[in-house]
């Protein structure tokens, strides 16, 4: 496998307040993030609200400036381009290769533009083609995501949520990208529509040879679609692992907690009362000292309160975790609680 994208020591700090009469405060949204994305894989970034997963996605694609760190995009020939230092003009060619799908199908499509123009816009901006060729390319891309050609003259409000998300996908794919960042792309959709879109993303990946960064809070969906998972908590990567290993045997207590909390659509596997889930995500502004998770961690000891653990490979496996006791803790996975199959 070849690396397609690597993120090195990425940090993002927001400065809040700081008016005429106020001291500004710093809010660390991303803290020293390191990760790589391999060509052809689906890398999921999971975590609860405020963990920084969306910010990370936006920093990678340079929709937001980063405070520190580097993002390398690996070209076909093996050369690396550092994206964060490029200015608007210089990054434009790479915007063809890295595209994004947004969460909200309502706000991500311009209500004043027709579907055709929405999907054609990237082609026009990059001056890739025009006239008949442009038209054909837009129509065929829309056809691939299941939007019929007779609908291209309509405005977004004429479409249902699922169809709008398909249009958003078409806009991302029309430039033949290499890497697609899907930010909660199915979260706003109804269950049956969500399944359609997940299948569509799967098929398109096959057809176009795509790599996905799939940002989600839904572990069930992540288990279904991802090859590898990055778990984030309070702006830190706490665990990265191949999907199956992560669900089989998580290495970080936070991952265990997430899996524990995940409701499973089978009443016979009901989890019942669970006193071990405790606390809530602290506000980003008052981040705990030491391990960011120690305030909610049932395994926390003094060391956790004092010293910040580093992300490291655990016992020589493909799993990495940032927990002082990752090597020794025996954490509970999710599969043993999973049903065989609900419907025969």
């Amino acid at each position: 496998m070849t690396t397609l994208l690597s993120v090195e020591n990425l940090s993002k700090v927001y400065t809040l307040g700081g008016g005429l009469f106020k001291q500004s405060r710093e809010l660390v949204a991303l803290n020293d993030i390191n990760l790589t994305v391999e060509a052809g894989e689906t890398l999921a970034i999971v975590g609860e609200s405020g963990c920084g997963k969306t910010t990370l996605g936006r920093c990678i694609i340079k929709a937001q400036p980063v405070t520190e760190g580097k993002v390398f995009y690996h070209q076909d020939g093996g050369q690396k381009v550092e994206l964060t230092s490029l200015d608007k003009r210089a990054i434009k060619p790479w915007r063809r290769d890295i595209r994004m799908i947004f969460q909200d199908p309502m706000s991500s499509l311009n209500p004043n533009m027709r579907v055709f123009d929405i999907v054609a816009e990237p082609l026009r901006v990059h001056r890739i083609c025009k006239g008949r060729e442009l038209e054909e390319r837009v129509v065929s891309t829309l056809a691939k995501v299941g939007i019929p050609a007779d609908a291209i003259g309509r405005y977004p409000h004429a479409f249902s949520g699922g169809q709008r998300q398909r249009i958003g996908i078409a806009r991302a794919l029309v430039l033949d990208p290499k890497l697609v960042i899907a930010d909660e792309a199915v979260s706003a959709l109804d269950v049956s529509i969500q399944a359609q879109v997940l299948n569509l993303l799967d098929d398109l990946k096959e057809e176009f040879g795509l790599t996905y960064i799939f940002i989600s809070h839904d572990l069930g969906v992540v288990n279904y679609i991802a090859d590898r998972v990055v778990v984030m908590y309070l702006g830190h990567v706490v665990e990265t692992s191949p999907t199956e290993l992560l669900f089989e045997r998580p290495r970080h207590p936070y991952t265990e907690m997430l899996l524990e909390a995940l409701p499973i659509a089978d009443p016979t596997r009901r989890k019942g009362r669970n006193k071990e889930l405790k606390g809530e995500i602290p506000y980003l502004g008052n981040r705990p000292q030491g391990c960011p998770f120690h305030t909610r961690c049932k395994y926390a000891e003094d060391k956790c309160r004092a010293e910040k653990p580093v992300l490291r490979p655990i016992n020589g496996t493909a799993q990495m975790a940032a927990c002082h006791f990752a090597e020794t803790l025996n954490l509970k996975g999710a599969y043993d609680a999973a049903p065989q199959k609900v419907i025969a």
């Binding site: 706000s107 311009n110 209500p111 806009r171």
Partner: peptide
């Protein structure tokens, strides 16, 4: 802050194009 404006930025559109084509008509 609307996603469709971010989307236009990610398309690589210039500020002028974003303002005139995406924002003003709205």
């Amino acid at each position: 802050t609307e996603d469709f404006v971010t989307a236009a930025q990610l398309d690589g559109a210039s500020d002028w194009r974003i303002v005139t084509r995406h924002m003003v008509p709205s």
